[in-house]
Write a protein that binds this DNA or RNA. Structure first.
Lengths: 190, 190
DNA sequence: GTCCTATATATGTCTAGTCCTATAGTAACA
DNA sequence: TGTTACTATAGGACTAGACATATATAGGAC
């Protein structure tokens, strides 16, 4: 379960609550890297606590629900460092659209173009989200106190974002040329 | 469940057994598009039969285990055509390596390069597999009798393969430049 | 003779992830 | 005054997929 290690990585930066992990991390700065469900985050935190990788202190609040603040233990740090250094194969990718295109011989050009255009739209949004993150990134990292390692961190994070943006652009290009290939003459219609 | 529709698409081409689907399709011509587990194929066939999308005739064999030959029904064809035309969002991609790089500030250059190199190797294999399919594709499709729609089908399948190959190449390029970025001076060491 | 592979179907179990709902107080909004 | 949103944790139910194993026969390799 890689999610467990993502959480360890986030807790290494600072102690957090489940809610904080969800709203400040998984929905925000690493949304492009690892989307995570709230329920799964809480359940994973329970497991990590049982394993002794994190400890939990309850902060009693009266105007709001109590918070469970999770902190990384030494065992947790060790496990994370170990994970960080070992290769984990990427999961097999299964894209319905590509299967649809594979079987698309029986579809009309219009139907195929429609599928491609819907994907195009979805991917333009994803690209925009990545580019937004890229613009936001420098501002956010000003806070970091340790300059030596934070520079390395920034470089790596920029590299990762660049890959994601490049990929999206390649896909968008392909989608556009595919649409053009399918509708060579037609001027447009809607 | 997209697997169900992949199976319907394959059965539309010709009737097949579960074993045939696995060995001749999922492990072969559409291995790049949709990897599927044998157990899952059989269970999905059961469901499709229960739904009335396929029918099953048992062919008794004496020297070998009996075969259950599945054929697409009209309802199955209709369901498949419907699925083929509607947009199905791509699943969220979660890549451990990118998370690792995101947190890689604390790792040494050597450790990071090692991670990248392992991914590079895995991806070179994937690219090779895709390129092998690309070279194989024309020969395989000679068998098709209906020339009109088979040409369309070939075009689409070529397009899909081109996308996958392009993607792999972009990723490989990025991996190589990332490795170069991390190890700017060092000549190598192992 | 034994082991491995191919043909063929089927079941059990597990993990990761998604979605929905419950709880419960405060605060803003209309 | 009712509704919605925010903070915060938690459990139930379900799906897709991965992995392991069982069964049974034939044939080739060693």
């Amino acid at each position: 379960m890689s999610l467990a290690f993502v959480i360890l990585g986030l807790l290494q930066q600072q102690q957090r609550t489940g809610y904080g992990l969800k709203t400040e991390c998984f929905d925000d700065c690493i949304a492009h890297l690892w989307q995570a469900d709230q329920a799964q985050i809480y359940r994973t935190l329970d497991k990590l606590e049982a394993q002794g990788f994190v400890t939990c202190t309850v902060e009693i609040q009266h105007d709001r629900p109590n918070r469970k603040i999770y902190t990384l233990t030494e065992a947790g740090t060790a496990a994370f460092t170990q994970w960080l250094q070992t290769h984990h194969p990427s999961p097999t990718l299964r894209e319905p659209l590509l299967v649809q295109l594979h079987f698309a011989a029986q579809l009309s050009d219009v139907a195929i173009a429609h599928l491609l255009e819907q994907e195009l739209e979805a991917r333009q949004e994803k690209l925009a989200a990545c580019e937004a993150l890229q613009n936001m990134a420098p501002a956010e990292s000003n806070l970091s106190p340790d300059d030596l390692s934070s520079l390395r961190g920034q470089t790596m994070q920029r590299l990762v974002l660049e890959l994601m943006i490049q990929r999206e652009k390649v896909y968008l290009d392909w989608l556009q040329t595919a649409i053009a290939t399918i509708q060579p003459k037609s001027e447009s219609k809607d």
